[in-house]
């Protein structure tokens, strides 16, 4: 299927704490986007967004649903998790701020770069979080050549 032909949708469940399967959804998303014929730079940005978001769910939340929609001009990712939520979203978007445990850091994550890196790779970034309920990220990456390099 060519991306120019239609809109593509798929849903990926992510389970909190499942470090063994971390990256599965992001790698699958990357392969799908490559198969859709999207350029490698854009695919890389979307894969990084998906991976960072997936790791955040695995490290902090109970579960989440990642929804991928690809239209001729945009990649749209919604990550809606059920988890503790983020008390101070502005602080969480600060590079280097992290509440990660030692175990998370030993795996190479939890450096406080996840959300900032998601935002950096997105053309449109929205976050909504409620303490005790969860966090919803909505990311758009343009594929029409007018997005970020």
């Amino acid at each position: 299927m060519s991306v120019a032909e239609s809109t593509f949708r798929r849903e990926f469940p992510v389970k909190g704490g499942d470090f063994a399967k971390a990256g599965t959804a992001a790698c699958e998303i990357k392969e799908l986007l490559k198969d859709l014929g999207i350029d490698t730079t854009t695919v890389r940005r979307a894969a990084i967004v998906a991976y960072e978001a997936e790791m955040n769910v695995i490290m902090y939340a109970r579960e989440a649903r990642m929804d991928l929609t690809v239209s001729p001009k945009e990649i749209h990712l919604i990550i809606d998790d059920r988890g503790p939520g983020i008390p101070d979203v502005e602080l969480a978007l600060t590079e280097g701020y992290s509440t990660a445990t030692a175990e998370m850091r030993e795996l190479g994550f939890g450096a406080g770069m996840g959300l900032p890196n998601i935002k950096r790779n997105a053309d449109v970034f929205a976050i909504d979080s409620e303490v005790g309920r969860g966090t919803r990220l909505e990311i758009t990456i343009r594929t029409n050549g007018h997005g970020k390099p």
Binding site: R44, G108, F109
Partner: peptide, 15 residues
């Protein structure tokens, strides 16, 4: 110096 599965996954994602 990290030698786990996440290194491979990260390399794959980030090309």
């Amino acid at each position: 110096g990290l030698a786990n599965f996440h290194v491979i996954c990260t390399c794959s994602v980030a090309d």
